[in-house]
């Protein structure tokens, strides 16, 4: 669309230069979203597209919209996406097995349909017509004009949307909230429990990994004063995963010493 606008002469040269520098990058990034194997890379490319769009908005004199696009979409929404992707799996890449039959065909049909719809709509609205109304809309300042529209003409829609968002946020909180059966043990409770326990061996905390051993890595057990490994010094997760190094090689080899 902007290409046509350039030919029609309604776009200023710096704006056209900006467009031709950034638009190909945005398209490449969009393709990259589909091609990237890691979900985090896709998310990053999406963030890049959002920033590019914000720059376009600013170039089109929609300053407030551009800045808010960065704050809300890039800063908040994409960041939450990234959060989830990172927490779900640090190294997980998408599974390439297709479970739904005819997924590709229907996806292509839907994409072509949506694209055709958008192109025809936008084209009918802008093709062969020069854009009007920007000067009058921005007359009293971009922010002021937007505020006037939002809080007079569209105030009802605005309030309804905000009510919807608050409801959604509350719903998410209700779904994610779980009633605790017992109150959570705090530091003091845990300390008391250690001292009132059956044995006072762990009263001062569990032994650190690798203490007195020849290595101090987390997967190497500590050695007790008699030279035998202390099983409590290793995280049970590591043990279950099989990431623990067998402690035998770290035991003091007393027999050899005696022979010598």
């Amino acid at each position: 669309m902007l290409n046509l606008a350039v030919q029609l002469g309604s776009t200023k040269t710096p704006e056209a230069v900006l467009f031709w520098m950034l638009a190909p990058l945005a398209v490449l990034a969009a393709l990259g979203i589909l091609m990237a194997k890691k979900a985090v890379h896709s998310a990053l490319l999406l963030a890049w597209i959002m920033i590019t769009l914000a720059i376009f908005y600013i170039a089109e004199d929609a300053l407030f919209l551009g800045i808010v696009q960065v704050v809300v979409y890039t800063g908040a929404v994409m960041m939450l996406f990234l959060f989830i992707l990172m927490l779900v799996g640090v190294d997980s890449s998408d599974s390439l097995v297709e479970n739904i039959k005819g997924q590709r065909a229907s996806a292509i049909v839907a994409a072509v349909g949506l694209g055709g719809l958008l192109v025809s709509l936008v084209g009918r609205a802008t093709l062969g017509r020069s854009a009007v109304g920007l000067a009058s809309a921005n007359q009293g300042g971009n922010v002021q004009g937007l505020a006037e529209q939002l809080f007079t003409k569209y105030v009802w829609a605005f309030e309804v949307v905000s009510a919807l968002l608050i409801t959604a946020a509350l719903g998410a909180m209700v779904l994610a909230h779980s009633q605790k059966v017992h109150s959570r043990n705090n530091q003091r409770d845990l300390s008391i429990a250690r001292f009132r326990g059956a044995s006072l061996a762990a009263a001062a905390g569990l032994p650190g990994s690798g203490v007195f051993a020849r290595h101090n890595a987390v997967d190497v057990p500590a050695l007790l004063p008699d030279g035998s490994p202390a099983p409590t010094s290793i995280s049970s997760v590591l043990e279950a995963r099989g990431d623990m190094i067998t402690s035998k090689i770290f035991e003091l080899q007393q027999k050899e010493e005696e022979e010598n």
Partner: peptide, 10 residues
């Protein structure tokens, strides 16, 4: 710019 402070936040 008219939204300078918002720009800093962005």
């Amino acid at each position: 710019i008219p939204v300078g402070v918002l720009y800093v936040l962005a």
